[in-house]
Nucleic acid binder design. Sequence first.
DNA 1: CGTGCGTTTGAGTGACTTCAAATCGTGTGG
DNA 2: CCACACGATTTGAAGTCACTCAAACGCACG
Lengths: 232, 232
Amino acid sequence: MKIMPADLKQVIVFQNATDDDLKLILKNSITRPIEEGGFFFFQGDHAQYLYILTSGQVKLMQSNPNGQQVNLRTIYPWQMFGALGAVREEATYPATAKALEDSTALAIDSGFLHEMLRTHPQISFDLMNLMTTYIQEMQARYRELATERVEQRVANALLRLAAQVGIRSEKETVIELSFSRQDVAEMTGTTLYTVSRLLSDWERKGIIETGRERIKIIKPHDLVRISDGMEK
Amino acid sequence: MKIMPADLKQVIVFQNATDDDLKLILKNSITRPIEEGGFFFFQGDHAQYLYILTSGQVKLMQSNPNGQQVNLRTIYPWQMFGALGAVREEATYPATAKALEDSTALAIDSGFLHEMLRTHPQISFDLMNLMTTYIQEMQARYRELATERVEQRVANALLRLAAQVGIRSEKETVIELSFSRQDVAEMTGTTLYTVSRLLSDWERKGIIETGRERIKIIKPHDLVRISDGMEK
DNA sequence: CGTGCGTTTGAGTGACTTCAAATCGTGTGG
DNA sequence: CCACACGATTTGAAGTCACTCAAACGCACG
């Protein structure tokens, strides 16, 4: 699929850019397809490109020296990734970007990006704003991990996912999610076994329905109560 | 103590600003003294000011609905705080800022700040860069909390603190820190009891020396080994 | 109709928390 | 200058949450 300059309007950081700017950006970027399971970059790689996902789904994760990993976030079309590395010259990516499905991204060279930021202050400003929201999200997740029990964190994660990407059924307040137990575990800093036990428990209570890589939220309100720690 | 424009050069985000700019910033800010134990602002307050600490020490912390809190970071002179709230108009502070000692800060009105960012792209850019480093730090701490044991996290926290604010003795590699067990616990997402047990253990092994609100690192290298999980 | 991956479930364990009580250190008022 | 009082710290004992490991299950796809 060919990307048009106008498509880039969907990128938050470019929403104030002119059509000419968008054209210039497109001209200075390359299209990079990665198939399911492949990687756009690894943690520690020299950060040559800033990416904008145009199709598919990408998981950003970070590993510790022992190889254990956490999910930092999942990227959906028209979101940027790799920005942390690419905005500073001579930097490396602090995370690994893995394609969850066949995906395509626009790769903007960091040299050109730097030039762009210098000549288009508005973009710096918008990027800064985007970063403030991201910092706040990370701070909130950090606090959650430090102070809340697994049960609350998982409930919270499901609610957050539902708000972001859930497919809402027409009549009822039923929300479908496509994530494995492992995914949810990595998102909440726990193990797939604990997640499985929790989900089974909630299913018995009629709060959710589950299947293979599928979670259907039946009673969001009960999840809210659990995430608030009002349980027990 | 009177703040001079040149003093502001110590603020990372203002290091590229002209003297005239610094003068303008000073003229549009007010000095705000807060005594030990007092607060510059609370989480959820309307974010009217961006602060620059000129003396003392400030703790940034976040609470969950139940009142449990985590330490996000400690601010030292010439560092900014309150930026996350103040750079967006009509926002609230995502954290609480408490003075650990009698402290003084320069308060820059968010309206003026916004104007400043609009007319001085370089500042947006520098601010964005500062935020990238902060995001990376938060991501790293998040991963630590999710994947590492308390022992490793505490060792890591001590090393990080030592690098930031430790007083290095001349001859030997001995580093002094002034933090209570409670402080360290809040920084690492654990309890003061666990921290106390750990520090006692390390003291018995000669890795550190401790006292009331005092931790002296004798063998940093051993802490590095512990933080890498090479213990046991 | 296998085969593999995602999932469930059980049993055992251990790291860390919680609560309680004793002890230590420091700074402050008499 | 000393003694007291309070906050910081230590330590023990008990409890628990969640992890680990192992094994069985079952759905979906080839």
